[in-house]
């Protein structure tokens, strides 16, 4: 199945350097329409206003965490099927379980490599 790489992708993280890293890695795999948000609240505003095909979000942010953002997305009728990948340093079992129960599409633990990011994106979008 061909993935539409022209889709809008929203990346969410409170560390600007991480946003830059993910943007550059996405660019290397031809995802060039990338927008950024610095926390869950900012991301939710952009998601509701825009037309995104994928969200890649950190977890540990304030005032709204990535998990809370995911929960909001899954409760919103317009956004509830949006592919959502969590990229986070939170690696405990209970974190993964909580994210899965909240409806995460996939979960990448930091530090991660480009191959993992590419693989998870392809897997998620193939099922979207």
């Amino acid at each position: 199945m061909t993935i539409d790489k022209s889709m809008n992708v929203l990346i969410v993280d409170d560390y600007k350097t991480m946003l830059r890293i993910i943007r550059n890695l996405l660019k290397q795999i031809d995802f060039n329409n990338v927008e950024e948000a610095c926390d869950g609240t900012d991301a939710l505003v952009k998601l509701r206003a825009g037309n995104f095909g994928l969200v890649i979000s950190d977890w540990n942010m304030a005032p709204m965490t990535g998990l809370e953002l995911l929960q909001e997305v899954r409760q919103d009728p317009r956004l509830k099927t949006l592919p959502f990948i969590m990229i986070t340093a939170e690696s405990k079992t209970e974190n993964v379980v909580a994210a899965k129960q909240a409806g995460v599409s996939n979960y990448i633990v930091k530090p991660f490599n480009a191959e993992t990011l590419r693989g998870k994106i392809e897997k998620v979008l193939a099922h979207a």
Binding site: T65, S91, T93, N95, Y107, K110, T116
Partner: peptide, 21 residues
């Protein structure tokens, strides 16, 4: 659930997380 990065000896790796998912 806000614990941040774990120490390397006790952190789950990507393959552990993939298996859990």
């Amino acid at each position: 659930l806000l614990n941040g990065p774990q120490m390397p000896a006790s952190a789950m790796g990507q393959s552990d997380i993939d298996a859990l998912l």
